[in-house]
Simulated assay, not measured.
Amino acid sequence: MKDKNNAVKIGILTLHRSINDGAVLQAYCLQKLLQTRLPQARVELIDYRPWNLEKIEYRKLFTRRFPFVNHYKWSKRSSLQEFINQHCSLSTTSCTTNNLQKVQKFILNQHYDAIVVGSDVVWQIRENRAYLPIPNIFWLTGLPGIKKISFAASADKSEKSLWQQEYIKKQLLDSLKDFHWISVRDEATEQILLNLGLAETQLSYMPDPTILWDFSSLLDTPKNITPSSKGKLAGIAVGSNQMSKTLTQIMVAKGYQVVNLLGSKLNGQLSLPLNYSLNQRLGIYPLLDFMVTDRFHGSIFTLKLSNAPLIFIEESDKYRDYPSKGRDLFQRLGIEAMVLRSEGGEVPDNLIDKYTAIWDDLSPDINKSLSTMRESAEENLKKFASILTP
């Protein structure tokens, strides 16, 4: 349904309410990208949140030990909400529910001409992801009369055994057959969809919107992150505290000061101020001289905003069935040698020297590879825009 100005109305269905810089920035970049490609359209984020996901995010705000509150998570949550309110257009009403029928009704009442699902891990299926059961709204089930598109959707960390269950395959195929265009951002997701029964001609590769959109204007360089007298600052963003401690010890021994970009300060690390905005957290990346992360978007931020050697950690217990989205990205950019597959959380003591040497060989071509990735996406972006053009 056109709005009062006869503009096409497009909704983006994604995971924009996570306490996660990458999740929020990819939503922002996708909205900016769509609005630029379709200037006459009205593009907005569909403000839907699965209730179970909300509970998971809410639990992150508390700790089991005194003072029982995770002040950093509270502050980060507030800063991300502020960013969304300032920089993103949202649906006029919101919906938080696990009930598929309720969210279907909510979305239909917004009168969208088209819905774009993605990017992010909107198609992940895991036993412990109860907030995304099958069927769920991220497959755009039960939304007749609306153009359906996936943009760089991912099923990263999905469990192969679940995808192979016949009743799940049938429900997903029934949903996907109504899509006007399907694009994914990693090979693992492509293989999963092919195994469901889709043809290669039905699928396209699309880089993450944070690669396609220039967000450098958002950066706010922090004033109180000060490297040591040697001028070397290393960033760490890994989920395992034990691995973070080990990496910190290795880096400190090499003369680096270390900042934990996930915010939880451990011994030997610089403190990240509680009141930092998303813009200020992004502003740390150009200051880095080395970076180790298991985060997909943390990798992209480092690649786009700094010249620092970058190691992506791929933990074997999390990627048993398929390669990680990080490995897929590094492979496409020609830097797969910078992926460290960790068994049981182990990292080598010579990590910095070993990977600095590899980086020195690979880094001259990275910017060219990123440019090539953006250029190769242009044809698909034009096709994408043509589908949404009335």
Rank of each mutant, 00 (worst) to 15 (best):
N109Q: 08
D361Q: 14
D289Q: 05
D3S: 07
Q269Y: 14
F215E: 04
K318A: 07
Y112R: 11
G283P: 00
V258D: 00
D294Y: 03
K148E: 13
I366A: 14
K318M: 08
P390N: 12
R77Y: 05
D208H: 13
D328M: 01
K169L: 11
R42C: 11
M206S: 02
A114T: 07
L381V: 07
M338G: 07
N6L: 06
T201P: 00
E346C: 06
S89N: 13
N367C: 10
R49M: 05
F138N: 08
I125Y: 11
V24E: 00
I137R: 13
W74P: 02
S264N: 14
S78M: 09
L219M: 14
K232H: 14
K147W: 06
K76Y: 04
I107K: 06
A199Y: 00
Q86N: 14
K2M: 13
F106W: 03
I352Q: 06
I300N: 02
R295F: 06
S217M: 12
Y285S: 00
A237Y: 12
F66Y: 15
S18Q: 12
S369E: 09
N98W: 08
L193S: 15
V24S: 03
K169E: 14
M1F: 07
G145K: 11
A385C: 12
L25F: 04
A155Y: 02
D365E: 10
Y48S: 13
I125E: 12
V259D: 02
L288Q: 00
V117K: 12
M338W: 02
T141S: 06
N350V: 06
M373P: 02
L173S: 10
R327E: 05
H87S: 09
S216Q: 13
K55S: 07
L100V: 05
F83G: 14
W163Y: 03
D214L: 05
S150N: 10
I311V: 07
L381N: 10
P144D: 15
Y322I: 01
M291N: 00
E159M: 07
Q202K: 07
I134E: 06
E343K: 03
A377Q: 06
N260F: 11
Y28I: 05
E82W: 14
L261E: 04
N260W: 09
E82D: 13
S244H: 10
N260V: 08
W163Q: 01
L305I: 02
A23C: 10
D321L: 03
L53P: 02
N99G: 01
K102C: 06
Y48I: 04
L329C: 15
L274I: 04
A308G: 03
D3Q: 11
S277A: 06
R65N: 11
Y205I: 13
T141F: 08
E82F: 15
D178K: 15
A253Y: 14
Q86S: 10
I115N: 12
L340H: 08
W163M: 02
K60V: 10
K169P: 14
N367M: 12
F384M: 03
S306D: 02
P135T: 08
L272N: 03
R17W: 03
S306R: 01
L388D: 01
L305D: 00
L381A: 04
N195C: 03
S18V: 05
I56W: 11
A188Y: 00
N195H: 12
